[in-house]
Design a protein around this nucleic acid. Structure first.
Lengths: 133, 133
DNA sequence: GGTTGACTTCGAGTGCGCTCCAACTGACAG
DNA sequence: CTGTCAGTTGGAGCGCACTCGAAGTCAACC
């Protein structure tokens, strides 16, 4: 499975805010808010001033949703977006940011697995002592 | 490792709110708030009206911190606490609650592992294209 | 040409989970 | 007797991440 790209239709296709929201699993409110907060560079507009999301925009949003879901604060996502907008000279910084975040995600998974053990233990106990109440 | 019990000192020992907070990794504010919110049954008091946390109280708090950390909303923790206070006749409900929560935690771990892949891919990409900027 | 519906902006509101403040009390050390 | 310190209460405030309402614009369809 290639995690880097995903077809979203024919080339030169662009999506409305509603379509993009649907596709990435965020609301239109959130999409506009992300733009306002600088998590997303200003999105292109059509002649009527309506947002048009390109495949690249959608890819970026997908990445953002992953960062959010793994617990990255919006503040850090903004920082990352700013770095990305500054181009190649910030590559090292962006890589460091990802590595730090990966470490946090790994720790998170480890914690969840620990907590899962306790959950399993509890459920097992409810099972073992069934009918004793 | 026995996840069900942990020594916290000689028998009949009880802890102040500050000591309990330190031990379970919450603040004194949060401990009082948990009590107020019904996540913890009213804690025993000394002659001066100060809270005294027993080993059982601390165990309960440890469980709560695990539930919180795995993303259980406070509302659901309260529900669980209420069930627990109602005694054995709610065993089935509590078990169901844990099983539902375990399913969520498993899904969570799965998602995190997916997201980790993307993170790894990105970091790898920053590595592969090093010096190309 | 009127209606529908998705879009626009701006600013206010919401829900969650704490977090803190003010005012006070009581135990203990010097 | 006088701090100092950890505790008490009730209620206010905060940070985060959205979420929504109001008022208006525009394109498309009947």
């Amino acid at each position: 499975m290639d995690v880097s790209t995903q077809e979203i239709g024919p080339p030169e296709t662009s999506l409305s805010v509603g379509e993009a929201a649907e596709l990435v699993g965020l609301t239109t409110y959130t999409l506009r808010w992300y733009e306002q907060e600088g998590l997303v560079a200003p999105v292109g507009r059509d002649s009527a001033g309506r947002r048009r999301y390109t495949a690249a925009d959608v890819e970026w949003l997908r990445l953002l949703t992953r960062l959010r879901r793994t617990g990255m604060p919006v503040r850090d996502m903004r920082r990352y977006a700013e770095l990305a907008r500054q181009g190649d000279r910030t590559r090292a910084a962006r890589r460091a940011l990802f590595e730090a975040h990966r470490a946090r995600v790994l720790r998170q998974i480890g914690e969840l697995e620990e907590d899962l053990k306790v959950l399993n233990y509890k459920i097992d106990m409810y099972q073992r002592t069934e009918g004793c109440g």
